[in-house]
């Protein structure tokens, strides 16, 4: 995981008040790296603008 991703992880942790204990940091960094790799497959795919997100609010 690069420095930008680590910086994001720490910033997000602080922003949503979900602290990462020092003894858990390595395992969370490793898990985030796996998720980030998977996320890349999703975000790099160009979807038509007409596609809406699957969950829909039905009043």
């Amino acid at each position: 995981m690069d420095d930008a991703e680590k910086a994001y992880l720490h910033a997000a942790s602080a922003l949503i008040d979900l602290p990462i204990r020092p003894e858990h940091l390595d395992e969370v960094v490793a898990a985030f790296a796996v998720i980030t790799a998977q996320a890349g497959l999703v975000t790099e795919f160009l979807l038509p603008e007409s596609i809406e997100a699957a969950p829909r609010f039905i009043p």
Partner: peptide, 15 residues
């Protein structure tokens, strides 16, 4: 923990 910290873009695009 790592899952909860994902950026919104990922989840929106995934949906």
């Amino acid at each position: 923990i790592a899952g909860a910290l994902q950026p919104a873009e990922t989840i929106y695009q995934a949906q």
